[in-house]
Design a protein around this nucleic acid. Structure first.
Length: 137
DNA sequence: GCCAACGTTGGC
DNA sequence: GCCAACGTTGGC
């Protein structure tokens, strides 16, 4: 199983709406690197859900319930979407600033490549984030 | 609101 | 094919 992180501006789509809907198609990605990451996701992979712009926190974990399929919102081009389902809400939100101050997370893509919206997370990074969230996994 | 990072576009 | 201009994202 692999670990990932997706970003969303809570103003357009936040964790509470995601919980309410019960699942969502992660569409609209129009960046090749992010697209490649979506394509590499497999059923059951765990995905950290990060609120960009407002909060700047990882707020919970989702899981991939449908691997990559053609993005229905794309008018042209080879873009894909996945279906995500909420798995767990974090007890303690994990803030960007805290991650920056955590030595184990200094190489995390979230910090190194701030504009990428879908990115891989290592097992070690995932474990550390779980620890910071107050959930033991 | 500003600005840095960076991806994309278009002129040459 | 290079690179300047421009647009977008996201941290601050």
């Amino acid at each position: 199983m692999r670990y990932w992180l997706v970003k969303s501006d809570p103003e357009s789509y936040g964790w509470p709406e995601f919980l309410k809907e019960g699942k969502t198609d992660w569409t609209g990605v129009r960046n090749f690197q992010a697209r490649n990451n979506l394509q590499a996701m497999m059923y059951g992979d765990e995905v950290l859900f990060y609120h960009s712009q407002q909060g700047r926190d990882i707020v919970g974990i989702a899981t991939v319930t449908k691997p990559a399929f053609p993005d229905p919102t794309a008018k042209s081009g080879n873009w894909v979407a996945v279906e995500l389902t909420p798995l767990q809400s974090f007890k303690n939100l994990v803030n960007l600033e805290v991650m920056k101050q955590t030595p184990e997370l200094k190489n995390i893509s979230l910090i190194r490549q701030s504009r990428l919206s879908v990115m891989p997370v290592t097992g070690e990074e995932f474990a550390k984030i779980m620890e910071l969230s107050g959930l033991q996994d």
